[in-house]
């Protein structure tokens, strides 16, 4: 069943067409890895899907219903589509627990005890049960990103967007974050993941999309796209990525 149907999505910044007509159907339970060189429009695609950027053209349907008009509707869509950012974007004036409770209290209007119980569960799930009282400044990058994942999960989103969740992390911290994302994958969550971790994409994604010049250049199973790419630009991209691998 199609959860999110994207059609003809386009976005320009100034004279620069960053997205030039994207058609993409995301089925429930799918895990899509989005690859592409920098500037290919990966982040903009993600940001358009929850309307952090307002698309210039095209349509987005969530559960068969067209969405995207009016602030009230956008706010509702964002509650159903969670997002995890490269730079975490945790709220520095709140503890880990406060960060995870925030959406529940302010947006969902849950009572504080209920929100706190929920937030503690989510933090335990990402392995941070002992860090609930810590402020972001006192957490490592990997811990921050796991708090950010717990914050998104607490809203119980139908679709999770990950925008290069490990790109800002020291190499030795990447594993703990990828481990959490893989656990979510195993729960059958629907997710769209922009990443440069090709190995992770290969093992966890159900579909891989290669973006170039703001359009889907090639897509297919991880094996098709990552092991046997058909198109030249995909091949060149993968060759560059594998140049220094062991």
């Amino acid at each position: 069943m199609t959860l999110l149907a994207v059609s003809g999505l386009a976005k320009r910044f100034g004279g620069n067409a960053v997205l030039a007509g994207i058609d993409l159907d995301i089925e429930k339970g799918e895990r899509i890895a989005v690859l592409g060189a920098s500037g290919s429009g990966k982040s903009t695609l993600l940001r358009c899907l929850n309307f952090l950027e307002i698309p210039d053209a095209g349509s987005i349907a969530l559960d068969g219903k067209l969405v995207g008009r009016g602030e009230r509707e956008l706010v509702q869509v964002r509650q159903r589509v969670g997002m995890v950012f490269q730079q975490f974007n945790l709220f520095p004036h709140m503890t880990a627990l406060g960060n995870v409770m925030e959406g529940l209290c302010t947006v969902r209007r849950l009572a504080r005890p209920e929100a706190q119980a929920r937030a503690e569960r989510e933090l335990a799930r990402v392995g941070l049960a002992d860090k609930t009282a810590h402020y972001p400044a006192h957490l490592s990058g990997g811990q921050k990103q796991r708090v950010a994942i717990a914050r998104a999960l607490a809203m119980d989103p139908e679709l999770l967007l990950f925008d290069e969740p490990t790109s800002a992390l020291d190499p030795e911290l990447v594993g703990e974050v990828l481990g959490v994302i893989r656990a979510l994958a195993e729960e059958g969550r629907t997710m769209l993941l922009v990443t440069h971790e090709l190995g992770f994409a290969y093992h966890v994604a159900t579909r891989v999309i290669f973006l170039a010049d703001g359009a889907i250049h090639e897509q297919g199973t991880p094996d098709e796209v990552l092991k046997h790419p058909k198109r030249e630009r995909t091949q060149a991209f993968l060759a560059r990525h594998k140049e220094f691998s062991l």
Partner: peptide, 28 residues
Amino acid sequence: RGQWDGARALGMSFLQAMRRIILPQALK
């Protein structure tokens, strides 16, 4: 801008994001 992104991505309205996320940090 990331603070706005973080707040909006949770489904906060402009005023909620301002009151809960932006102003407390800005006032400091």
